[in-house]
Amino acid sequence: MNVHCFVTDTRNPQIRGHQIGATWAAQIRQTVELYLDFFNQVGVPRAQVQAIGEASLQALQGWCPSLAEEIVATAEGAGVPLWQLASLNARTEILAVMPASTEGECSTAVFAPNGALPPRTIQTWDWHDSLVPNGLILQLTTAGGMTVKLFTEFGMLGKIGVNSAGLGLHFNILHHASDNGSAGVPVHAIARRILEEATCIDEAIALARSARVSASTVLTVFSRDDSSPRAVSIEMSPAFTAVVRPDAGGWITHTNHFLDLELSLGERTPDASTTYARFDHVNAALRNMASGKLSRRADAMCGEAGEDAPICFHPDLSMPATERWETLLTIGIDTENSVLEYAAGNPKQLARNGYLRF
């Protein structure tokens, strides 16, 4: 995956959308085409893709009009039919109508004990290598004047990021028995709005709870402020939204299964998934993952297994593209300076080759 960077300082979502769409039209059109083909390959009819995309955009319009306006403007700027870009932003909502994959995506660890030191975080982003030849690191200015820096796929509103209030966010997909095709607010849009508006943990929780969702996801949010709690995982599902707090040492970890006891009763991730092995692996490595330097956290996250650790995905080219997974990005968030630290590839590659700061 090639990672590109873009900075926009307009506070107007329509102007921002046109800027992003026009500047990155080729990448956005490519991403849309890849996802539409992917939906077809996994058996979601085109008419259903369009219906969920359009209805999710309508749900977003009711929940956060400015983000819906940005999608409309981005589609116009990129020359993409609006329903197609809406469907891209609702990709998790569309996939919620399918049986849960035997794999998940992403392993996250956040160390945020009370005290003067800022949180230390790291996440892998694992996804289908064929869908994301390019990724985007975006810096924007909100209507209220905050700066947001985030990583996302081209054409999508958001995913992982940090704002100038010192609030950071990691993103992991989940699967619950209550997931359905009713086209709720896109979970990627919820992540984006939290980054645009929340200045503390309680505000992030309130924003997440205010959205009706049709697909499950966990947003792990954390703050540079020495608050209580300083970090939580917000597990969202159509059934309800739960908040998971750190352990006594200040650690909070997540892969792709529910940790809330009540929500876990509706767990839809198959036992064959590596989510449980990855979760155990990360928790076993925590003792060495509290370093202030991302490369050391990344190396410790892999441990002695290196790139053979269960948190590192390598695409099996003998498998269909819809069943191939790769660790496309490793990212940490510096909330003290509101900076993203990242490298394309798995944590061991980051530890060996270094990383970029944005």
Score class of each variant (00 low, 15 high):
His314Val: 09
Ile71Val: 13
Pro99Met: 06
Thr327Lys: 00
Phe240Val: 10
Ala177Asp: 12
Pro65Phe: 06
Ala90Trp: 05
Gly292Glu: 14
Gly145Glu: 02
Trp24Val: 00
Ala231Pro: 03
Leu131Ser: 07
Ile311Asn: 04
Ile173Val: 14
Leu138Asn: 00
Ala26His: 12
Thr102Glu: 13
Thr8Gly: 06
Met156Asp: 00
Trp83Tyr: 12
Asp225Tyr: 14
Asp129Gly: 15
Trp251Gly: 07
Gln19Arg: 15
Asn134Thr: 15
Ser223Cys: 07
Lys293Leu: 14
Gly144Asn: 15
Trp251Pro: 10
Ser216Asn: 08
Ser182Gly: 13
Ser130Gly: 12
Arg230Pro: 01
Val221Asn: 02
Asn163Leu: 05
Gly332Asp: 02
Asn353Asp: 15
Asp299Val: 03
Leu95Trp: 00
Met289Tyr: 06
Gln41Val: 09
Asp271Gln: 14
Ser291Lys: 12
Phe38Ser: 10
Ser338Asp: 05
Thr31Ile: 08
Thr335Ile: 07
Phe279Ser: 02
Ala343Asn: 09
Met1Asp: 06
Ala242Met: 03
Phe313Trp: 13
Ile252Phe: 02
Pro113Thr: 01
Leu263Ile: 05
Gly184Pro: 01
Thr269Ile: 02
Leu340Trp: 06
Thr274Tyr: 15
Cys64Ala: 15
Gly135Thr: 11
Cys302Met: 01
His175Val: 12
Asp37Arg: 11
Ala208Gly: 06
Leu131His: 14
Val244Leu: 10
Ala96Asn: 00
Ser56Asp: 11
Ala343Phe: 02
Ser210Met: 10
Ser228Gln: 13
Asp126Met: 03
Leu157Pro: 00
Leu294His: 03
Ile333Cys: 04
Thr147Gln: 08
Ala300Gly: 04
His257Trp: 02
Ala344Phe: 02
His188Asp: 14
Ala68Pro: 00
Leu36Glu: 07
Ala191Ser: 15
Thr74Leu: 11
Ile190Gln: 10
Ala109Arg: 04
